[in-house]
């Protein structure tokens, strides 16, 4: 089984639209939405939830007011300003480091595990699908990404592929989205920041020794920058596997909860088919 992770230097470059389109095209696969901060894939996939589980991704300090002697040691040592003036923990600030528990002379503080989201495994017509929804302002999303992938693993039959809708950026969620993948597909747009965003995310892939492939979305919006991106890729050993044209029909299709593929956009469909052919060949070649 091969895992392909779709990422981008910044959000909104069209990862989910691409993965949703590929979900129609690619056979024998599972799907994971690892963009846990802004999961979108479940909106486009008709799915029936098989398993929902609470996710406990953080710990928080709790002060027992009955035992507290109001000495203020916890407030002194807390580097996250998570203890207020009447010696209560402010959950949104607490990192769960436990420094306060170490200094409390009355033993009034303990760390408790807190629920920070849910993971889901669902059945869709296009294969088993896992995703997660984080509680508002919750932390620990890198671990949650891992959790989503783990949940999906448990439902593995003999699928050939896992398509991972990854996270944007270069931080912990991205790293957790790409570990163990056979290839990373970076989706970029030809904007002023497009190349530097792409360079950064491909840098992460290279740092972890995973082959990086590139898809340029809305390539015709700026032919000069598209050429720059292609040059950069040629010179640095990253293959451009797809160039998708700008098309208002994509936006219209999304407004109707459809992928451009379902909306019958021929030009778009051909590009996606070609992209998948190249991707399949490249990943096969890595063996």
């Amino acid at each position: 089984m091969k895992q392909i992770s779709f990422v981008s230097g910044k959000g909104g470059t069209g990862k989910s639209t691409l993965v949703a389109s590929l979900s129609l095209l690619v056979q024998e696969k599972m799907l994971a939405d690892c963009d846990v901060d802004a999961p979108n894939l479940h909106i486009l996939l008709d799915h029936q939830v098989l398993v929902m589980e609470d996710y406990h991704g953080a710990r928080e300090a709790v002060i027992d007011p009955g035992m507290c002697v109001k000495c203020g040691r916890c407030k002194e040592v807390c580097r996250f300003n998570a203890v207020n003036d009447i010696f209560e923990i402010i959950p949104m600030h607490c990192e769960g480091c436990g420094a306060c528990t170490l200094v409390c002379p009355a033993g009034a503080i303990r760390l408790e595990t807190v629920k920070t989201g849910q993971t889901y495994v669902a059945q869709t017509e296009r294969g088993t699908f896992a995703h997660a929804l984080l509680d508002i302002g919750a932390e620990g999303s890198g671990k949650l990404v891992t959790e989503v992938r783990k949940k999906l693993d448990q439902f593995q039959k003999d699928e050939k592929w896992v398509l991972i809708d990854g996270s944007p950026g270069i931080g912990c969620v991205v790293i957790a989205s790409i570990t163990g993948a056979s290839a990373v597909v970076a989706v970029a747009e030809p904007t002023k920041s497009g190349l530097s965003d792409l360079e950064r995310v491909l840098g992460v892939a290279r740092h972890f020794g995973i082959p990086g492939l590139v898809c340029i979305n809305k390539f015709d919006l700026n032919p000069e920058i598209t050429a720059e991106i292609e040059n950069f890729c040629n010179n640095n050993g990253f293959l451009v596997i797809g160039k998708i044209p700008y098309d208002p029909a994509v936006m219209k299709a999304l407004q109707e909860f459809k992928t451009p593929l379902e909306a019958g956009n021929r030009r778009f469909a051909m590009e996606i088919e070609n992209l998948w052919k190249k991707l399949e060949w490249e990943v096969g070649r890595e063996e």
Binding site: K10, G11, D37, L134, A138
Partner: peptide, 10 residues
């Protein structure tokens, strides 16, 4: 702000 709704946005 950063994208998303997690700790860094808070």
């Amino acid at each position: 702000c950063p994208p998303g709704a997690s700790c860094s946005v808070v």
